[in-house]
Design a binder for these strands. Structure first.
Lengths: 203, 203, 203, 203
DNA sequence: CATGAATGAGACTTCATTCAT
DNA sequence: GATGAATGAAGTCTCATTCAT
């Protein structure tokens, strides 16, 4: 009913526009309620166009997830000096993740929703394994360097990576539910805690 | 077509039967695909009966979540000697959580699905806050005792609770994705790590 | 919107009701326009119920076709004395087919529509071969008997069957387009013509 | 994505190009599946252009049908010597129709699809009557000449025409379903049969 | 108490058609 | 003239929910 002007955009612009609307809708309403109709409405576009560019709803969700992972990873990678002493890198990374919660909250929420819900018809998950692996491996490499340099305890690097990620995710989730959390302070304390657990000497 | 005897069970038995079927269905197929029809089928009961006992699908999911939380909490509480020295309690709790993954995996998976997806029509979450609070508070109390007794560092107890929970959840999630993980060993190492971070002296 | 009383019928009654509505709708509006909505409306039933009983639209059409073939075949078979002299049987069969046009016109029209349009996704026909074969074979048997008894010319029986069927179908199609046709007279003349072509002596 | 040169053709060339693509698509995929997108793709032309030249999809189908009828009729007419003795003409026509199946099979299939499916919104057929009439009348004229010359029996010429057409169509349909049919032999036998039915003396 | 037939809302998807470029 | 991006109207199908039995 809403009279909408028929604008012509390049394919890239449209795709971006729709992907952003998908992230916003999924983050706000959750995976279930993020129907194509609502996504299209949010993008200011007809339902048909969404199908035209992305095919199935599942395809759209999958593409949204990978695009979002890329965005987030770039945001993180750009800001870290990976050549610094490892404990310093870890502390910086935690602070950075905390800030991520402010700048990319929607993206993170949407990503969690999609990875938690996107499945093949038979019920098996379609995501989350392969992509997390890459993250874990990068962290492992960092931890190994710390061990080689004598600044980290000799614990299983994979386990450290998983724990680190879990602790950071918990921080972000907690901040999500308690918006008045002082994230910078939280990050500092969490760094103390984790480095106390994995570093040698102090942190 | 399967000829099913119309058995007459007590209300409690019926409810339990349906709740268990809900947990199993949600854990296997995910929140979306867990339709009332499939749940009813799994419970060996008619769709109508499910509605009769639990009202809306949302209501059913909410009840399933709280019942599951109760089950899990009881399983944990029953096995822990909370009067022991705090670091010892923590180490035992981690091991216990690891074992939980074997005994209550479906329950945990279903719980994650429901808390992640159940929402009010306006999109806001309907769960996970109030119920986690209780868990956090119990852990905080434990950590405070540790601090009072001089066995734990003087970090924000709430933060310690959140981090502890996040690290344990990460362990369980990782084990879910990598079924060949040696969970007892993982639990030991995680206890070393966390106690290194929060305990005084060692762990 | 139409307030419809919710009546409970046996599965058989519903299926029959829906199949009849399908025949009527397809015959009247053609295959394309026979949407599930229109079929359901004609049956006085909700769209959902049609899907419930017959699955896909394609499945419904296929079932309708086979059910209709059965109906028509029974109507024909019941009325013919196959032990009479072959030319006599043929003449009677033509008359019978002509009368079929009055009693089962909708069924015949719908059948033609469905066999002409029902296809697999790849474009290949899904019907019409196997079922016609059975008809052809029955006619062939009749013609062979005529040849054995010396009342029919020695032409390829399969070809006679195909031609006979084509001529009869043409009669029915013509009568469909020209409703004022005197079908009994047509049938008589057609019998003269065909028996002149295939019988020995006369007909 | 296929880089297509934007060629500038005369209107007639464009129309022919599109009509041929329509015939091919309808013959291959059936009336329903012959979407404008697929037709345009096959013609190597944009969807917009198809609409531009032919208006509605229905219009396109109608034009395709009449153009195809014309093509087929010309192919037949060109090859028949209508001044020969009538039985001879008939035998030749049957052979010619059989050959048509090889040279114009797509056209014939498409024609059948369109006439069988094209309808006004109210469900009534939009074709097949008027156009067949012309064919019938031409055949009637031939049969009348035969009767005047004493070579054909005194049966209703219209009925003979309808039967003749039905028998020939059956031959073509059968050959379509059974590609290994020896059509020349079939045509010979069919001529024997039909002339036996309608000719005086023999054929 | 229990069933499952039946409804109706709404989701996804396809496609003829329009129109800015 | 020609394109193909964009729309919007169906159509098919699924499912939570109701209700006659």
């Amino acid at each position: 009913m809403t009279e909408r002007p028929r604008r012509r955009l390049s394919e890239d612009q449209r795709r971006t526009q729709i992907l952003e609307a998908t992230v916003a809708t999924v983050a706000t309403l959750g995976y279930d309620q993020a129907s194509l109709a609502r996504i299209a409405e949010r993008a200011g576009v007809s339902k048909g166009l969404v199908s035209h560019y992305f095919g199935t709803r599942e395809d759209l969700m999958a593409e949204t997830a990978t695009a979002t992972v890329r965005t987030v990873r770039e945001a993180i990678g750009a800001a870290l000096d990976l050549t610094a002493p490892v404990p310093q890198v870890i502390r910086a990374a935690i602070h950075h993740a905390a800030r991520l919660h402010l700048t990319h909250r929607e993206a993170l929420t949407a990503l969690a929703q999609i990875t938690g819900n996107l499945r093949s018809p038979d019920g098996t998950r379609r995501l989350s394994l392969a992509d997390y692996e890459e993250t874990y491996r990068a962290q492992e490499a960092l931890f190994r360097r710390g061990q080689a340099e004598g600044s980290l305890r000799d614990l299983d690097p994979r386990l450290m990576a998983v724990t680190y990620q879990g602790a950071v995710d918990a921080m972000l989730g907690y901040a999500e539910a308690h918006p008045d959390t002082d994230l910078d302070h939280y990050a500092d304390t969490l760094a103390d805690l984790l480095l106390g657990g994995i570093a040698i000497g102090s942190g």
